[in-house]
């Protein structure tokens, strides 16, 4: 009865596997994903994704976004502040009530710039407005990838802890296809507000851990082998042909 032996050992194996739990998040390495959505009040009709992979204090960043003002530089940053709310700003953050959110007004939500997502050169906060080194969103589409960005340890930790926020800046309130307007930037009085106000925003979050428990078992396969063994034993007792039954069962299974 090799079949019954197999079944027995399979059962023991399954029992031994039971304690296997879901793997917990890594301490130092990992990744965060952000779903970039239009910033409240700022009128961008687009969306984006950000993926940040952390290895120690080195991060690599992939960004994609649609619906941005085409062919204009879009400053993009990772924001984090220990005292920030670790979220994207809401309409209530419009403290001067002018109907738009500036980068400064978003500060309580996402904190200061900690990484400038430039295409080349420096990535520190001092490049936050290096407009000639940011992606220009050809056709309104932005696709960005850069690795080997060194960050402070607390920033790496914040990214994995769901506390860092990716913001892409640059809007077109008056819909004329360029950065202009009488309102000037809160960050650089030489730039129009349109060039620096936040467009898309998303909080970097670790993906959900592990698998999903999406079954109750009510329509699971019947434990046919066990029943067949019982049936086989019955036949064995009654007919003396148990071995044949089991052989049939194995070829059927």
């Amino acid at each position: 009865m090799r079949t019954s032996l197999k079944l027995a050992s399979a059962a023991i194996g399954a029992a031994a596997l039971l304690p296997l739990g879901v793997t917990t998040a890594m301490a130092a390495d990992g990744s965060g994903n952000a779903n970039l959505a239009p910033v409240a009040l700022n009128g961008v009709n687009g969306s984006g994704t950000a993926m940040v992979t952390v290895k120690g204090d080195v991060v690599s960043v992939t960004l994609a976004a649609k619906g941005l003002l085409a062919d204009q530089p879009h400053a993009a940053h990772i924001h984090f502040g220990a005292d920030a709310r670790h979220e994207c700003p809401a309409a209530a953050d419009d403290t001067n009530k002018d109907g738009h959110l500036t980068t400064t007004e978003g500060g309580p939500a996402y904190g200061p710039v900690v990484v400038s997502l430039t295409k080349t050169g420096d990535t520190s906060p001092s490049s936050a407005l290096a407009v000639d080194r940011f992606d220009t969103a050809p056709g309104g589409n932005l696709s960005y990838q850069r690795g080997d960005i060194t960050v402070a340890p607390e920033v790496a930790t914040a990214i994995l802890a769901g506390q860092a926020v990716v913001v892409i800046h640059g809007v077109d309130y008056n819909g004329d296809g360029k950065y202009d307007g009488t309102a000037m930037s809160d960050l650089d009085p030489k730039l129009p507000a349109e060039a620096t106000d936040p467009a898309l925003c998303g909080v970097l979050k670790a993906a959900p851990v592990g698998a999903m428990a999406t079954g109750g078992g009510g329509a699971a396969a019947q434990p046919e082998q066990g029943l067949l063994l019982a049936g086989g034993a019955l036949l064995l007792a009654g007919l003396g042909t148990g071995a044949y039954v089991v052989r049939r069962a194995r070829t059927q299974a």
Binding site: L36, G48, A64, M212, G218, A219
Partner: peptide, 23 residues
């Protein structure tokens, strides 16, 4: 925590394969 279906990125929808009493 993900994009809504149709936004850039992967929208995730989950459902059970069966319940306690059937599909």
């Amino acid at each position: 925590g993900g994009p809504t279906p149709g936004q850039l990125g992967a929208a995730v929808i989950a459902a059970h394969v069966d319940g306690k009493s059937g599909p």
